[in-house]
């Protein structure tokens, strides 16, 4: 019995937690990455809600469409002004599930993979807030941020560090299909990720420790 684990946690959380028993692999070739993105009602984590989550897996530098997950959430909060960004209507055609189900499915899907997102701290915070509403702890996964990984490449000679996904996909010639859908953005981010890794690999042999930085952990705190 682990004294620090609240025994009252639901089964799905315990199952999720168990995946973290083993030490994290650092060889990039043996890590399953899950690139994800959320569409939300707005940018304030304290008020806004997740409308959709999209993910796509990467293994051995190959994007696995078969390892993807997509869901749309039922939320009471609805903000007309953000519809023009994500295009998700309150009614809408997509089958919607409640937040709890979405979180259960999401955790079941990601397991102990290394998460990747652009501006990861926002998406991670949104997920953590949802977990909190379910009275659960925060995500346990290591999270990488493509924005920070890009900064490690030194490809940009200016002092700017805060590149948007749009700016980077343009720079890396990634076609911007389905921008602002969770899965679409996850896919673009995934392409960006493999390109960045491929670029960094040319310089030297890299491991997980070379692409994660304390900075990226901020989202978890």
């Amino acid at each position: 019995m682990n004294w620090f684990t609240k025994t009252s946690y639901p089964e799905f959380w315990n199952t999720y937690s168990k995946h973290f028993k083993n030490k994290q692999e650092t060889d990039l070739g043996s890590i399953r990455f899950v690139v994800f993105d959320t569409e939300t009602t707005g940018l304030n984590p304290n008020q806004d809600r997740i409308l959709s989550i999209g993910t796509v897996g990467i293994f051995q530098n190959t994007i696995k469409v078969s390892d993807s997950f997509e869901c749309y959430l039922k939320q009471d909060l609805f903000k007309a002004e953000t519809v023009k960004i994500h295009g998700l209507l309150k009614g809408g055609k997509n089958i919607k599930i409640d937040e709890k189900t979405a979180i259960i499915q999401f955790l079941e899907h990601i397991k102990n993979s290394v998460l990747v997102a652009h501006n990861a701290s926002f998406d991670v915070t949104m997920i953590n807030k949802a977990l909190k509403r379910l009275e659960l702890p925060k995500l346990k996964n290591i999270v990488l941020d493509t924005k920070n990984i890009f900064n490690k490449t030194n490809l940009d000679k200016t002092t700017k560090t805060n590149f948007s996904l749009d700016e980077l996909s343009e720079r890396f010639k990634i076609p911007q299909h389905d921008r602002h859908t969770a899965s679409g953005d996850a896919f673009i981010t995934a392409l960006l990720f493999v390109k960045l890794i491929s670029h960094l690999k040319k310089e030297k042999k890299i491991t997980l420790n070379d692409i994660k930085s304390p900075k990226e952990r901020i989202g978890l705190l």
Partner: peptide, 11 residues
């Protein structure tokens, strides 16, 4: 078939 596609990036 598309659901099972792998996407490779090659330099």
């Amino acid at each position: 078939i598309c659901e099972a596609v792998d996407v490779h990036y090659l330099e």
